[in-house]
């Protein structure tokens, strides 16, 4: 969808669209994210029409929320370089358990649930990456060493295999120390046998893999260009890659003009792939079958970042405090007080 159509559908915002969308959502959904509200950091849940269901205060800024598909538990985790992780009940927002990062370690902002474990991307004082493995009640069990810097998003591929986006960037606080020679990779780990089973690198060594999504055992990663001074030489590089035939294959070249060679979140299902660029205030939706762009709009969603999908509906959030949903060509936008942080996740009621 392009600008003219977007305008058309934006004008349609209102009760009629709420009605249309609520018809589309057959099963009610909870969308959970974190953000800033009145100078405080909070965990917040809304329903599919943007109505706030609960808000819970957090110790510091959070980043991603992962979910246990087998129950209503979620894990909200501190933003890099963060120190806390909180297991909570997604239905109520009530805390089940809150922990600090292991001694002399910090969290990178992402986690995932496997069948028997909670896995958190973690770093030591030199920012060397590890996976911190906890049981489902958030008791620490052990580390898996990644031997590279800056692990970021991690997602479950199947029962025990985890995909880890490793940016390769060594950081102190948020300052990058190895911009010239970082080595980014996608690492596949089998947590049941505590073993790295594969490492995959991108052809373009200037890109850093930061985000990924998994669906039906398929892995798609999103890269960024951290060194902005190399932009001109990397204008035509793809940012979105699929793990296929034992290599990372370029599938999508988001327009560098609009995406600014920066992707904050990525999500896909059987039919659509969505990526956001808050730097370009841009959201893109592509067809999974042929990677064709379906919806590309610049400067329409200010500071857009968080995305999630549910029953053929795409949801996204902005740092300005807006949430939107898109079902077919109907877009509904509503305003919340919260400044939404980078990631969203859907939980079912």
């Amino acid at each position: 969808m392009h600008r003219r159509e977007l305008l058309k559908y934006s004008i349609l915002m209102g009760s009629l669209n709420l009605l249309n969308c609520s018809k589309a959502i057959k099963k009610e959904v909870l969308i959970i994210g974190s953000g800033k509200l009145n100078n405080k950091w909070v965990l917040s849940a809304i329903n599919s029409t943007g109505h706030t269901l609960y808000q819970k205060k957090l110790p510091k800024r959070a980043h991603h929320i992962s979910k246990n598909k087998n129950n209503s538990h979620g894990l909200v985790i501190a933003r890099r370089p963060g120190n806390y992780a909180r297991l909570f009940d997604s239905k109520t927002g009530q805390t089940i358990k809150e922990i600090n990062a292991p001694n002399n370690h910090f969290f990178f902002g992402h986690s995932c649930f496997s069948k028997n474990n909670i896995i958190i991307s973690c770093g030591d004082q030199t920012s060397l990456g590890k996976l911190a493995i906890y049981d489902l009640a958030l008791n620490f069990e052990y580390f898996i060493e990644l031997n590279n810097y800056g692990p970021h998003q991690i997602e479950l591929i199947n029962n025990n295999q985890i995909a880890v986006a490793v940016g390769g960037l060594q950081t102190i606080e948020r300052k990058i120390l190895n911009m010239e020679d970082f080595k980014s990779e996608l690492i596949i780990v089998d947590v049941s046998i505590n073993t790295i089973i594969n490492r995959y690198k991108l052809a373009n060594s200037k890109l850093s893999i930061r985000h990924l999504h998994t669906h039906n055992s398929k892995v798609i990663v999103a890269a960024q260009l951290p060194d902005r001074d190399t932009l001109f030489e990397n204008l035509n590089t793809a940012l979105i890659y699929e793990l296929k035939d034992n290599q990372l294959k370029a599938i999508i070249h988001p327009n560098w003009n609009t995406f600014k060679q920066y992707i904050a979140s990525i999500s896909f299902d059987d039919t659509h792939l969505i990526a956001t660029s808050p730097k370009g205030h841009t959201l893109g939706i592509w067809s999974i079958s042929d990677n064709a762009i379906l919806f590309d709009t610049q400067l329409s969603f200010v500071d857009v970042a968080g995305i999630t999908q549910f029953q053929n509906t795409a949801f996204w959030s902005t740092g300005l405090g807006y949430s939107s949903s898109k079902y077919n060509d109907v877009i509904i936008t509503s305003k919340q007080e919260i400044h939404w942080d980078n990631h969203w996740n859907t939980f079912y009621v």
């Binding site: 800033k36 980043h63 940016g167 990058i176 500071d303 970042a305 968080g306 740092g319 405090g321």
Partner: peptide, 13 residues
Amino acid sequence: LSITLGFNNSDGD
């Protein structure tokens, strides 16, 4: 104005 600049566009996240 409750406007945040670059709330979500910090490099690396």
